Amino acid sequence: MRIITVILLCFSLFGISQNTQVFEEANALYNDGKFAEAIDKYESILDSDVHSAELYFNLANANYKLNNIAPSVYYYEKALLLNPNDEEIKNNLAFAQNMTIDAIDKVPDVGFSKIIKNFVNTLSSDTWAIIAVIGVFIFVLLFLLYHFSQATSRKRLAFVVSIASLFIAILSVVMAFQKVRLDAKKNPAIVFAQESRVKSDPNKSSEEVFRLHEGTKVQVLETYEDWNKIQLADNSVGWIQSQDIKLLNDF
């Protein structure tokens, strides 16, 4: 069993070394202006089931240099999913989005809903969960201090801080579940068809409601056979053929 583990580890290390070499070769091709060849190298790494923000970012840059609208937007978005705070990715994505044809106005969140959503999105669900665990731990610790302490002032302080810790823990749990719910509703995709006719129902004979072009980002609401129900940033809804889009959450 130990021998098998060692062999698997050796293969794994060999694969990492090989992908690093291919990545460096792709970067060299990119720097030489051989963008198509660089894309082939980057994609060969993806074929080995390796994913990283840096890989997607470089792949997006190479496609952008060739004016490949949909792939450049798609790979910048993939890079942003893996590294959501990277300003360079955001800036390059904005440049790529400027190449798209469709101008879709985003419907902004307003009022209390906007405040809650912004607050929930300040942290990841895992971070909210960690805060909840820390809050519970502090609550238990201070509750014990309150129970065994003799001094009135110390008991009062321990009681107040323990209640505050419990409140923070409960709030964090609620925020964690809310974050998970919001993330579950997100199923973004990029239109890859040069022009796609979006229908009112999932069949080719139904009424056309609007058209979309390559590089446009949509949210997939549901799937029926080879059709996807999508929603745009302006809340427009329609059905698009599955072959015309690529899901961003697929890794």
Rank of each mutant, 00 (worst) to 15 (best):
D47S: 15
E54P: 00
S52Y: 12
I69C: 03
N31C: 03
N63A: 06
N68T: 07
D32P: 00
K78G: 01
S44G: 13
E54F: 08
G33V: 01
F57P: 00
N61V: 02
A60L: 05
Y64H: 13
N63S: 05
D32S: 13
A62D: 03
K65P: 00
K78C: 12
L55I: 04
F57K: 15
Y56R: 04
Y74N: 13
A60W: 03
D49V: 06
N67G: 00
S72L: 06
Y42H: 07
N67M: 07
L55Y: 08
Y74G: 04
N58C: 01
A36L: 15
A70C: 04
N68H: 09
Y76E: 02
S44Q: 08
N63D: 10
F35G: 02
L46H: 02
K78S: 11
Y42F: 15
Y75V: 07
N58A: 02
I69W: 03
F57A: 08
V73D: 09
I45N: 11
D47I: 03
D49R: 02
S72A: 11
S48H: 02
N67T: 09
E54Y: 07
E43Y: 01
S44T: 12
K41C: 09
K34R: 12
Y76C: 06
F35K: 01
N67R: 10
L59M: 10
Y30N: 14
K78V: 12
A53I: 08
A38Y: 08
D32A: 12
I69E: 02
L59V: 06
A62E: 03
K34C: 12
A53V: 06
L29P: 04
Y74W: 05
S48D: 06
A36C: 02
N61W: 02
D32Q: 15
A62K: 08
V73E: 11
S44F: 01
G33M: 06
E43F: 02
S48I: 00
K65Q: 15
P71R: 09
V50P: 00
Y64R: 14
K78P: 05
I45F: 10
A38G: 15
K41Q: 14
D40A: 15
N31K: 15
V73A: 00
S72G: 04
A36P: 01
